[in-house]
Amino acid sequence: MMDAFERFGLIINDRVVRTPIAIASMAGIVDARYILERKDHIGVGLIGGYAIDRPTMDAARGMAASSERKEFVYDDPVEALGAEIAQLKTFDVVTGINLRGSSPAAFAAVADAFGDDVVYEIDAHCRQAPMVAAGAGEFYPKNPAALMDVVKTLKSKKVTVSVKIRVGIAADDRALVRALWGAGADIIHVDLMDAGIAKLRQLRNSCPLVIIANNSVTTFDRMREMLSHGADLVSLARQSDVKTLAGLDAAISRYADEDGWYNSPKQLCRGGDIRALTFCCMPVKECPLIPALTRIGLSKDEYVRLKLGAVKGTPLEGGPNTCFGSLAWCCKTSSPCMFRDMTLAQDGIPKKEYMRRKRELSDTLMSRVFHDVPSPESR
């Protein structure tokens, strides 16, 4: 698994993720069998959604009986989930369970049964009226205090928590993800709907959580678009056939091996998220860097000190013939620059290694930007 870690650097639930591709839950469809048929081309499998208490179980039964929708229907949720989880334990896929519950106690009961074996994904996404009326799905982003109670309850069990949301449901998506970060969530699984990449960039700029982006990921271009605007992983649902998954897996692996940073952001001046500060030059002219620093509360001087300090003793420290005397200020390799490339060649630094170092620099910058967990008063 070291190859996968070196390639992507992704760890979820204390396990290396072999590829940044997830299967999103589809009620009545995505179970252990579904994941196992696709296990060679995914890193995370989110089975479900599973109703876990009486109100949501009754809603699931009603939905299955009154429409052509499929639902997982059973009498004992812990027993049903246990049988599914057991089938996935020996395989190289991080397992998550997408849960529909109407109270913190319902989620706590499942966490007590399975401990830290799985990722617990709170379904704050389902928009079916019976499930929302039961106090699950889209009920949660419309009632964020209830959602935070569930997150905090699960985190008290010392487990990894994902929250699946649909953009445009909460009053303010950025405020919601910041509140989820403050409550202890580890992962935001976001259905972008028709909101576009700008919304994903907003979420990335609002929290340091792992982001799984979902919506119409059928091509590598679409995958890279999401990764370059803030996603750590992408997820597929209806289009999660083996052929599509295999193509995406092969393409992102090749890209990572060639580029060195599989989800490198676009540069800030080209619409990138704030991870792209790693590619920005010194703050000496009016450009998108200046308002970005203002938004994140970083002065120009602090930005310069932070960046130069982070590269000290690394291959990025040098570069006297570059525009600002150090590779710390140089752009990404997809942008032509004779001075950067000349320096890399002279110092014997492969472009892949340069990008890997830029990712490390970005991680340092993001640690500073997201140093303080938001308090309830600041949300």
Rank of each mutant, 00 (worst) to 15 (best):
G9M: 00
N13P: 02
R15T: 04
P20K: 05
I21G: 01
A22I: 01
A22R: 04
I23A: 06
I29G: 00
L36H: 03
I47G: 02
D53W: 11
D58W: 04
E68Q: 14
R69Q: 06
K70P: 03
P77A: 01
A80C: 04
E84V: 05
A86I: 10
R100F: 03
S102K: 10
V110P: 06
G115V: 05
G115D: 05
V119I: 15
C126H: 06
Q128W: 11
P130K: 11
M131G: 07
A146T: 08
D149M: 02
K152P: 03
T153I: 08
V163D: 10
G168C: 01
A171D: 13
A185T: 07
V190W: 11
A195D: 09
C207E: 01
M223F: 12
Q239W: 14
Q239F: 14
A246T: 03
G247L: 07
D249M: 09
Y255P: 04
Y255S: 02
G260A: 06
P265Q: 02
T278C: 15
P288H: 05
I296E: 01
S299H: 10
Y303W: 11
L306P: 09
K312R: 15
G313A: 07
T314Q: 02
P315T: 08
L316E: 05
G319I: 04
K332F: 09
C337I: 06
D341C: 05
P350A: 12
S362L: 07
R379C: 13
